[in-house]
């Protein structure tokens, strides 16, 4: 009996345990792509919001330095006491952008994950991927409904933090069935969401960071850690 045989045996046990409990076809590259879509989306959203930002971030009229009357006006815009058609039109445009980003991200994610699974000749739809989706779905759907209700009530200022927090919770919940990095991504999103809640005027910025930069960052880490190493075999 050689050392190598035993080590082989042990590593085969470890490998099979990991493959049986974790959804490891999840593609890191799809995270990077989702991040890019999110950044483009945030850029478009910023363009739509530009006139609005010019008021709020202007030292003369803005939130931070403004007189109390302007302050309450702007607070009204954010927390829903003012009802203007202008804001509603912007909200609909933003919603459209968000839906397109979401569809593109999910589509790319599914596509790349299927491709990775094929390359490693594993199935995509197995016990662990089902568990992964099941765990993540509840916080995600709750968050989705919550955000739609915020939209209905025109609480625009807390939509970005709500997106980040619920998405983070979904990731943390689902992470037990995939790579540990997903849990850290989830925790970062939650923290960022709470921060965004503290600074309601910078929602878009936090959103762009959470869905754009963090996705690209973690996607890249996961790509180099798992995807590349496995395709080299």
């Amino acid at each position: 009996m050689k050392d190598k045989d035993i080590l082989d045996e042990i590593s085969s046990i470890k490998n099979i345990m990991e493959r049986s409990t974790r959804f490891i076809s999840l593609s890191g590259l799809s995270g990077v792509m989702a991040g890019i879509y999110a950044l483009v989306g945030a850029g478009l959203a910023y363009n739509n919001l530009k006139p609005f930002y010019e008021i709020t971030h202007n030292p003369k009229t803005g939130f931070v330095y403004g007189e109390s009357s302007t302050l309450s006006n702007i607070k009204g815009l954010f927390y829903g006491s003012t009802n203007t058609g202008y804001l509603e039109a912007i909200a609909i445009q933003l919603l459209l952008i968000a839906i397109i980003v979401l569809i593109l991200s999910i589509g790319t994610g599914i596509l790349l994950t299927i491709r990775k699974a094929h390359r490693k000749s594993q199935s995509v739809w197995n016990q662990s991927s089902r568990a992964f989706l099941k765990k993540g779905l509840l916080p995600l759907l709750t968050g989705g409904c919550f955000i739609l209700i915020l939209l209905v009530h025109q609480y625009y200022g807390i939509i970005a933090p709500a997106c980040l927090i619920f998405y983070g919770l979904a990731l943390v919940a689902a992470s037990q069935y995939t790579y540990g990095d997903v849990k850290w991504l989830g925790l970062s999103e939650i923290g960022l969401g709470l921060l965004a809640m503290l600074f309601p005027l910078y929602g878009l910025l936090f959103w762009a960071f959470g869905f754009g930069v963090l996705h690209i960052l973690y996607g890249t880490i996961m790509y180099f850690k798992y995807d590349r190493e496995n395709s080299a075999h």
Binding site: E9, S12, I13, I16, M17, S20, T21, Q122, N126, Q127
Partner: peptide, 25 residues
């Protein structure tokens, strides 16, 4: 080796079905 692998899967998971096992191994 296969029996050891089956056992590894069942120790790591609450339960596992026949088809998933077949595919995994």
């Amino acid at each position: 080796r296969i029996r050891l692998q089956i056992m590894s899967v069942l120790v790591a998971n609450e339960s596992y079905d026949f088809n998933s096992l077949k595919e995994l191994l």
